[in-house]
Write a protein that binds this DNA or RNA. Structure first.
Length: 920
RNA sequence: GGGCGGGUAGCUCAGCGGUAGAGCGCUGGCUUUACACGCCGGAUGUCGCAGGUUCGACCCCUGUCCCGCCCA
């Protein structure tokens, strides 16, 4: 075994072994009665390649699946990818643009062909990248949201909802993305807050008399679509306007003054509001209340249409300026001032969304939401971390109908056909050939496609074969865990719950595990423009700074982004490996909304992998000449060190089990990390050296057995988190006959079976640790070279401690690099410098000791005083507490007792330290 | 306007009723045959601010100021 573990080659070798061996496959065998564990992957979009968010999802999900699989569950992790309607269409259109083409140049059919080509390429790449992360998906079951069986599921769902009256077509005000030229759902619109805008005031002249009314707007161009001005019915200032009209200065229209208490806040601005029913949500509602005309003034691309008079053809923002100027020319402008406002922007294209009246397909949400709320309320579905339930409820209780049609080309076509001879709309599972109303054959399919989340909403059951009654659906639905980012709680999770309950009559999963968003080390969102995107593959395989910079430049990063990249990662990334990346991602608390990924942290876990590697190297080397094997039976050793490590293993496995079950993967991985490094390596391996060299056959045997057992067990425990390196090592560990072919199909360890809690051993060993620690401190603080032996004279009145120090003399000597521990006459320790030459002194609980021939008086005084100060501070707090009668009366007995004991101990320590100081 | 997070060591974060922890960084010493991707020491915090509850608060409550996100 080489001194350094190199993940690159090892990871791909083992991955291939697992995949070709069929270890990822879930069983549909009729006789298989194992409990199932199912998790559907949040399907990555086919918009490019794997990013750190996917790496994070994959890691968490893989840990859950590998853990369950090792626990004996029939585990199914369903992989797949999403066609991601608008997002993918935008990507391909951008490519076309570089060739100087638009989708219209290609035409719908050719364009879709082109997107399919892209899908093949991008989808395949992403699936390969998931494998690089170690994902144990059941690959032959991979689904794409536009596969033929998914199409069938989507059609079935659409038609059923339509037949149930839950899908309908309606004309209403929608969010229009003028760039992508499609409608957007409310969720796809982002509100950009605190934008500095201009509030422009202008006057409408009264129609039949002199005078005017002044209105304010941040969007002057919309006045071309005004069909009313509104005042508050109780506003005394404008009583004279009741029943009057104003005249539109550009289009000549007569515009009524209406009274509306809901729309108008008399305190705000002039107290008069212009009303544009076709381009503003509250004006639209007002229009409905008053039966106002809705005049659309925009074309679909955001230019002004034929209803805007002389402004026709102008872009909406040019029209805004033109309208202002013209109003000025007419003497109707009444000034302007700065105004902070909120702008609606398209989630995808970033352009300012224009409210427009349009006919679209909607899903009626209230009836679907009710059972989805219920399922979380009654605990059928558990959301973790639990705080998210509130957000979930709030959204579902205030849910609006979902606009599901999109004016895109890439997606599931809406299965609706319009008849040219009658009004009937034919909605059908099969492609319609004739009108369902009049039987005529002049029918035309709806041009639109479905919102991409419509198909995603069916994911947990469509991937298992729905609407067919498959074995998989029967066996694996409902799934157990849904692990995903909190950002798609509404987009996806809530909709899956609604759809699952509606179509399957059962929740789609029983736990929702929400994770934070991966950001760069500063906590900023990763973006190509910022140049702060960390590609998981670069982390796994390594990349030089030049490569990182080149990649960022190609992706269109700004100069500041490149600069950041150069200064933050001057040396690029080493090939840290997938296991190190996985451990890093796992180490962040799931409660945190931000995972500020730090390369230094990845490096730390790479070092951990190396530590594990070398610990194993040591263990295997030591076992080389012996026939001792791992047996999956916990040894029953007698020696303290062996008992201690098994007990610590118990504790680590216990914390790991709790963490894995409660979705605290940070705690689970942390417990194993610290056990391996701080206890197994730093103490136990060191302890094993004198034991194995002791020549005592019994001791050697039980130490070998314990060593190999702990190693083999901790590898199994770590396997879900670090699958590759644990396999690499595990394969080399001498094991029982008939051991499984792979660690991934071995049994997940538990404290009760694979370790042994031994509180006495832990307590005793603490004595050793404290003693050794003190010895080491003295050596370090007195600059005693390693070559110089240190003799320790100790004394204790405590029988247990006496026994431990006696029995563990050898280990203490080895670990403390002190030679010769002596039991001392207590009288000598009362005044150490009278009896020992140049002695340093230390005090452990119940034990005191002198170390002759090391002293540098100044340093020793310094050290003792520092210790004394600390002791006095602690003692001060404790004594104050104990002097407080209400503490003694009201605090729990155990707490008071502990304080008493601590204070006694500290007092003794203080005494000893003072004596030592005086004796200097 | 409503809601949700967060403000703890230089940095990134964990802890959440019994006298503050990790990783990285800093610092002193180690060519210790598992590992320098290492080992052994050390330093570092009025736990955002102000009140309150409690025998006791970083932890609970109230208010307040910042920062981020979501919804309207």
């Amino acid at each position: 075994m080489p001194k350094q573990y190199s993940p690159t080659e090892s990871e791909s070798r083992w991955y291939e072994f697992w995949e070709t061996s069929g270890f990822f496959a879930a069983s549909e065998e009729p006789g298989d009665t194992r409990q199932t564990y199912t998790l559907a992957i949040p399907p990555p979009n086919v918009t490019g390649s794997l990013h750190m968010g996917h790496a994070c999802r994959t890691t968490f999900e893989d840990v859950l699946c590998r853990h369950k699989r090792m626990q004996g569950y029939n585990t199914l992790w369903v992989p797949g990818i999403d066609h991601a309607g608008i997002a993918t269409q935008v990507v391909v259109e951008r490519q076309l643009k570089q060739e100087g083409l638009t989708r219209y140049d290609l035409g719908r059919e050719k364009f879709i062909e082109r997107v399919w080509q892209w899908k093949e390429q991008s989808g395949e790449r992403i699936l390969q990248q998931l494998r690089k992360m170690g994902a144990s998906c059941d690959w032959p079951r991979t689904k794409f949201t536009m596969d033929p069986d998914m199409v069938r599921a989507v059609r079935e769902a659409f038609v059923r909802l339509y037949e149930e009256g839950l899908i309908y077509r309606d004309t209403r005000l929608v969010n229009w993305d003028v760039e992508s030229q499609t409608v957007l759902s409310d969720l796809e619109v982002e509100q950009e807050e605190n934008v500095e805008g201009v509030m422009f005031d202008f006057a409408y002249p009264l129609a039949d008399a002199g005078g005017e009314v002044v209105v304010s707007t941040t969007r002057p161009e919309t006045m071309l679509g005004d069909t009313a001005v509104a005042i508050h019915p109780d506003d005394a200032r404008y009583r004279h306007l009741h029943g009057k009209y104003v005249r539109h200065p550009f289009v000549g229209r007569l515009i009524p003054v209406i009274l509306d208490a809901e729309l108008v806040d008399p305190e705000f601005g002039t107290g008069v509001v212009k009303v544009t029913p076709a381009h503003d949500p509250s004006d639209f509602a007002t229009g409905k209340r008053h039966g106002l005309e809705e005049i659309n003034i925009f074309n679909l691309d955001g230019t002004m249409n034929e209803n805007s008079g002389s402004f026709q053809g102008l872009d909406r923002f040019d029209a805004r300026k033109a309208v202002e100027i013209e109003l000025g020319n007419l003497g109707l402008a009444r000034g302007s001032n700065k105004h902070m406002m909120t702008l609606p922007r398209s989630h995808r294209s970033g352009t300012i969304v224009e409210p427009m009246i349009s006919t679209q397909w909607f899903v009626k949400m209230k009836p679907l939401a009710a059972p989805a709320i219920q399922a979380v309320e009654d605990g059928t579905i558990q959301i973790l971390p639990p705080e998210w339930s509130k957000t979930y409820f709030h959204w579902l209780r205030n849910i609006q109908d979902w606009c599901i049609s999109r004016q895109l080309w890439w997606g599931h076509p809406i299965p609706a056909w319009y008849c040219e001879d009658c009004e009937h709309v034919t909605v059908s599972r099969e492609d319609a050939t004739a009108c369902g109303g009049c039987g005529g054959t002049s029918i035309r399919q709806d041009d639109d496609v479905l919102d991409t989340w419509f198909s995603s909403g069916l994911w947990p059951f469509s991937t298992l074969g729905w609407p067919e009654k498959t074995v998989a659906l029967e066996r694996f639905y409902p799934t157990q865990d849904m692990e995903t980012g909190y950002d798609i709680l509404f987009f996806w999770v809530a909709r899956m719950i609604m759809m699952g309950l509606h179509f399957m009559g059962e929740v789609p999963f029983t736990r929702v595990l929400l994770a934070g968003l991966v950001t760069d080390e500063r906590g900023e969102k990763m973006s190509k423009v910022k140049g702060n995107v960390v590609d998981p593959l670069d982390v796994i395989y390594g990349a030089t700074n030049e490569q990182l910079v080149a990649k960022a430049e190609k992706a269109g990063a700004k100069k500041s982004g490149i600069k950041y990249l150069k200064s933050t990662y001057p040396d690029g990334f080493a090939a840290y490996g997938a296991d190190a990346l996985r451990m890093t991602l796992l180490s962040y608390s799931p409660q945190s909304r931000r995972i500020a990924l730090s390369i230094k942290r990845i490096e730390g876990y790479r070092n951990f992998a190396n530590k594990l590697w070398n610990a194993s190297r040591y263990a295997l080397m030591r076992l080389g000449g012996s026939s001792t094997k791992a047996t999956q039976q916990c040894p029953q050793p007698k020696a303290l060190a062996n008992r201690w490590v098994l007990s610590r293993l118990y504790q680590a496995l216990d914390v790991a089990a709790t963490g894995l079950d409660a979705y605290r993967l940070d705690e689970a991985s942390g417990a194993l990390y610290h056990f391996v490094w701080d206890e197994f390596c730093d103490w136990y391996l060191e302890l094993s050296k004198p034991a194995l060299d002791s020549g005592d056959t019994a001791l050697i045997e039980e130490t070998e057995a314990t060593l190999v057992h702990v190693l083999e067990t901790v590898l199994r425990a770590l396997h879900p988190m670090m699958p590759h390196i644990t396999e690499e090592i595990w394969q080399r560990v001498p094991k029982w006959d008939e051991a499984p072919k792979s660690i991934m199909i071995s049994r997940f360890p538990t404290g009760l079976v694979d370790a042994k809690l031994d509180r006495a051993a832990e307590r005793d060993f603490e004595v050793v640790q404290a003693f050794v620690g003190s010895v080491r401190t003295i050596r370090a603080e007195h600059d005693v070279p390693r070559s110089q032996p240190m003799r320790i004279h100790w004394h204790t009145n405590d029988e247990d401690k006496h026994r431990v120090l006696d029995a563990e003399r050898r280990t203490i000597e080895a670990l403390g690099r002190c030679e010769l521990c002596f039991e001392a006459d207590p009288a000598k320790l009362d005044d150490p410098n009278a009896h020992f030459k140049n002695a340093a002194v230390f005090v452990n609980p119940g034990i005191r000791a002198a170390v002759p021939d090391v002293i540098d008086t100044d340093k020793e005084r310094d050290r003792l005083q520092r210790n004394l100060k600390k002791v006095e501070k602690e003692l001060g707090v404790l004594e104050k507490k104990l002097a407080n009668p209400s503490f003694v009366e009201r605090a729990p007995e155990a707490v008071v007792d502990k304080s008493r004991r601590d204070s006694l101990e500290l007092r003794e320590k203080r005494e000893r330290l003072e004596a030592a100081l005086n004796s200097l």
